[in-house]
Design a protein around this nucleic acid. Structure first.
Lengths: 227, 227
DNA sequence: TGATATTTAAAAATTTTTTTACAAAACTTA
DNA sequence: TAAGTTTTGTAAAAAAATTTTTAAATATCA
C-alpha cells in the first residue's frame, strides 16, 4: 500500500512522529503547518487521505475540513481529525463537517495505523492492492482478474478459487482432499476425481499457447503451483 | 450547479427578484438587508459568492466588501457589486477594494446569471464539475445527467445510483450484497436477484444501439464496470 | 509387465444469470 | 385528490455457463 497522506499539524514533534510511523508503513507523507498552507497543499497534491489537527494557528482544522468536504474535487478524500479532547460536542461538530474519523491525543501508534488503513479501505479500496504473483502469473482479487504474461485469462469460479488458493503457497503440494476442503469447502461432498478435472481446466487456461506448465502433478500426492 | 449565494440588499423588491431568478438556476440563496447583518451571515455561512448592493443603510456595500477581502477566511469569496451609477471613480474604488465584478442597475436577468456563473467558474471551478468518466460513459452529478458517446441517456433513480457507485471504482467487482448495501442502503431488505434486474436495466440503457457492453458479469461474484 | 494413478473427453446434472412479464408502490400532474 | 405515469421488486421460464460424473485412454513406476 503506497497511499499519499498529507498531515496538517503545527506541533513539529508530533508531525515528525506521525511522519516517521506512517512512512514505516509505506505511506508517502507530505506536511503542512497551517490550515491555509495545508489546504493549498491538498488542492495541489490531491492526497489519498488527510490527517488534520483540530487546533491550528490560523484557522482550525475543522475549517480546513469543511473546505475539503465542500469542494467536489476534494470531498472524497477521507479526513482524520486529531483532537486533544474527546468531547462529544466536538465530535458532533466534526461529524457535521464531514470528518471521517477521530483520534484523541495522546494516541497509540497501532491505533493510528489501523484507522488510517480502515479509512483507506473504505474510500480507496483500489489502493489496498490485493493481488498475488507467481512468475508471470498474476491474480488480482479486487477486479477478480487473472493474467499470464500480462494477457488476461478467463477462469470459471472454481478454477479461479483453485488458483487463488494455490498461489498463496507456491511450491507447496496439496492433496486432493486438502484442495476439496479449502477450495470447495468442508461440507461439500464431491468425488476426488473432480479435482483432476478442474486442475486440467486451470492448466489449459493458464498454459494457453505454448506457455510452460505452472502446475506440477505429484503422483499419489496431489498438485502444486510450481514449474 | 448548487452554489450558495448570499444577497445583501435593502430594497426588498429587488432582493426578491434576485432570489427568484437565481433560485430558478439552482442556486441556494440567503439574504441580509444590512451590511452588518450581511457580514455576519457571510462569516457564518461561508457562501460561494456574495452579491452586494453598493448603497446599504448602515455602512456601504463597499465597506462589507473591504471586510470580506481583508479576512483570510473570506477573501476567496467572489463579490458582485450592484451599483446604480456606473461612474468610473466608483469602479476604480471598488476595484481597489477587491470587488470582483459589477452590475449596474437596472440590469437584465440574463446578464446577472451570466456574470454569476462566470465568477463561480473562475473562483470555484469545482462547483461546476462533479463528474466521473469511464471510457465514453460520463456521469455528471451536478446536472444528474448521464452520457454515452456524448448522447444523453435517461436513467431511473436506482439505475443512476448504481452507475454512480460502480463508476467510482471501475474494474472492481462488487457482489450483489455489496451493491445492495451501497446503492440501496443497509437497512433496506430486498432480494439479491433484484440487483440483476437493475443491472439489466442499466445495461440496456447504456449499451443502447450496438454499443459495447460496459458491464462485466463475474459469475458467482457479482458485477463491475469494465469492458 | 502389471498395478496404480492421472489425463482426457464427453454426457449429464446443476448452478447461475438473463430475460420477460406483472403487480405493487411511489410519484406527477391536471 | 384522482388519474396517469414512472419506477420498483418479485417470480418464473429460458438461456447460458459451469460443475460433476463417468469411463476410456494414457502415463508412470517398481
Amino acid at each position: 500500500m503506497s497511499a499519499n497522506i498529507i498531515i496538517v499539524e503545527d506541533e513539529k514533534d508530533l508531525a515528525t512522529l506521525l511522519k516517521y510511523n506512517l512512512s514505516k508503513e509505506g505511506f508517502k507523507i507530505k506536511e503542512a503547518e497551517t490550515g491555509q498552507e495545508g489546504l493549498q497543499l491538498i488542492k495541489r497534491e490531491l492526497p489519498d487521505l488527510v490527517i488534520l489537527d483540530w487546533m491550528l494557528p490560523d484557522f482550525s482544522g475543522i475549517e480546513v475540513c469543511r473546505q475539503i468536504k465542500r469542494d467536489n474535487k476534494l470531498k472524497s478524500i477521507p479526513v482524520i481529525m486529531l483532537t486533544a479532547k474527546s468531547e462529544i460536542e466536538d465530535k458532533v461538530r466534526g461529524l457535521e463537517m464531514g470528518v471521517d474519523d477521530y483520534i484523541t491525543k495522546p494516541f497509540n501508534n497501532k491505533e493510528l495505523i489501523l484507522r488510517v488503513k480502515s479509512l483507506l479501505k473504505r474510500f480507496k479500496p483500489s489502493l489496498l492492492d490485493d493481488s498475488s504473483v507467481f512468475k508471470d502469473l498474476k491474480i488480482d482479487r479486487i477486479t477478480r482478474k487473472v493474467f499470464r504474461d500480462n494477457h488476461e485469462i478467463k477462469l470459471g469460479p472454481t478454477e479461479y478459487k483453485l488458483l487463488d488458493f494455490l498461489i498463496k503457497s507456491p511450491q507447496r503440494v496439496y492433496s486432493r482432499e486438502q484442495l476439496l476442503n479449502n477450495v470447495w469447502g468442508e461440507t461439500i461432498n464431491v468425488e476426488s476425481r473432480t479435482v483432476d478435472v478442474h486442475i486440467r481446466r486451470l492448466r489449459k487456461a493458464i498454459n494457453l499457447n505454448k506457455k510452460a506448465d505452472l502446475i506440477r502433478t505429484v503422483r499419489s500426492s496431489g498438485y502444486s503451483l510450481d514449474s
